[in-house]
Amino acid sequence: MSIWEYANPVKFMKTSSLVLPWVVGLAAIAMVVGLVWGFFFTPEATNFGSTVKVIYVHVPSAMMAINIWAMMLVTSLIWLVRRHHVSALAAKAAAPIGAVMTLIALITGAIWGQPMWGTWWEWDPRLTSFLILFLFYLGYMALWGAIENPDTAADLTGVLCLVGSVFAILSRYAVNFWNQGLHQGATLSLDEKENISDVYWFPLLFCIAGFILFFVALVLLRTRTEIRARRLKALEQRERMA
């Protein structure tokens, strides 16, 4: 039995309908635990005050914003190489979620930045990169929306995703070169000494897990919808041709 069996629409519909309720439940538990713990049961940091608690939304959404694009890159490649329709539809389904995650990361970043740096927006490399990433998401979704033939749209957006990924990474380094910023470096490495203290760390882990599960649930749901829409389109087309 190979993993590609799940790329068959029938198999995917069957499996996803079994898995979906569990993923939704786990996502809800993890997010509620993580957010409630993080917001109400962690001490206020000495030099940050209560504003630090926005990390429980900011960090997971920022991580998802990047990882969702990476997931779209992988699924686009699978579609371009192996022609599995479900893979292309999963990429299509993931894009708006990624765009919203990027937007959440930007907005929570602004909310955090206001008290910390005294400004809502700063042309800091990380902020700028996220803005550019958001533009890539917008372009990707707009291209999906503009093309009538679904297979053509899947192919073209796949090519765009490949080229876009290269340029997103390139832009990241170009932006770094252009302006050294205020943003702090990574605080979530596995190295104990660099890490933020455990009190903040454990609820954050729950939040990250919650966001990932939430994303998986949404992608499954949206991909199922896309498959149904494709089925409908195929039926309509056949009706017209008969």
């Binding site: 629409p9 029938v10 519909m13 149904r228 089925r231 195929a234 008969a242």
Partner: peptide, 17 residues
């Protein structure tokens, strides 16, 4: 031929059994 008469099946024809 349409798939009911044994023609080529689209990728989404079988999705709902």
């Amino acid at each position: 031929k349409p798939p009911e008469e044994g023609g080529f099946k689209g990728h989404f024809d079988e999705a709902f059994g």
